[in-house]
Nucleic acid binder design. Structure first.
Lengths: 178, 178
DNA sequence: CAAGGTTTGTAGTGAACACTACAAACCGTA
DNA sequence: TACGGTTTGTAGTGTTCACTACAAACCTTG
């Protein structure tokens, strides 16, 4: 099978493109130009734009879990411990690009646009469940603790994106992290 | 001056439209149809799309300050006190619509798109400064406390938008609010 | 009434977008 | 070599979008 780009390589390129220019600038045409291929190869692998976006966001989520999962060894007691461990990993330039993407998707989801709404909703549920596996306690306790963890990390990282790393660092310290 | 719509009335309509359909669906054509007027009246008052968006976001910020400002009487000691007072006011259907808009703008800003980036950046600075006027302490202390306040409220409200009011309420309680 | 600010009618432009149709070429493998 | 998966050439479709040009009508105030 003679090929220049496999599906995965195109997805890879889409991740990079979305990181650079944002989700709203991720189009068949722009991505094709960026990769130096015909837009019809992309359509060949991703029959609709929704397919492309869904898979980009899903891949992004999986990749982030791999990064973070490596750092979370055993179960910890509460969200502060978890955040303290996670904070250095989510404040790198690479992570910044990933979270910029997520915030864009979150915003579009919050305003009700499909397919963002359903994808992000699924993603958030997965994350709550995933984070709770690193926590101690009953199922209910772990869920609440995971929700608090996600709220705090989102808030701090949003502050980081909008007010800068220094502001986020100060706030993190004030809230008992790092 | 014979007029059907003043600039302010159009801005009002734009706020409502953005709340209903999201910023990305706020276009001259759609707004004109929604208001039952010609799109050229809108262009007449808002010569470019960036003008319209900027003023919508600015108006949204001002309006939110008016709502919250009424509830904040005197200075309080820390972000927990402030959040406890603010929480009931930001968890109403009206506030939900406003914050959905802000999250959409934040997301577009995070991915670097103009004019969102510069407007939101200005807005965030204004908010940090504004929130700090309700706090006690030195200038530095108040700034950090304001940053923490904003991080937490953003995180909790984002969770509210994406995982639902119940999840946000649980997390808020766990974090010492409400 | 005259002037001037406002609104619409009519008619566009050029760009970006998602997506389609079809035939040809390419290329590794069986 | 024949097959089948892949890639491109060529050429579209229909939609939405921001924005423009211009003249006419409208309407309120001075």
């Amino acid at each position: 099978m003679g090929h220049k780009y496999t599906k995965n390589e195109i997805l890879e390129g889409a991740l990079a493109a979305a990181g650079d220019e944002g989700l709203s600038r991720l189009t068949f045409g722009r991505l094709a130009t960026r990769l130096g291929i015909s837009d019809r190869v992309i359509v060949y692998y991703f029959p609709s734009k929704d397919d492309l976006i869904s898979q980009v966001l899903l891949a992004m989520g999986t990749r982030l879990q791999e990064t973070l999962g490596a750092a979370f060894a055993g179960p910890v007691a509460d969200h502060v411990e978890l955040l303290t461990a996670a904070w250095p990993l989510v404040t790198t330039p690479d992570a910044d690009a990933v979270f910029a993407l997520f915030f864009e998707a979150n915003g579009l989801a919050a305003s009700g646009r499909e397919p963002y709404r359903s994808i992000v909703s699924t993603l958030v549920d997965l994350w709550i469940q995933w984070v709770s596996t690193f926590l101690d306690g009953t199922a209910d306790e772990r869920r609440v603790e995971a929700e608090a963890t996600i709220a705090m990390i989102d808030g701090l990282l949003l502050l980081r994106q909008l007010a800068g790393p220094d502001a986020a660092e100060r706030a993190a310290v004030r809230l008992g992290i790092a």
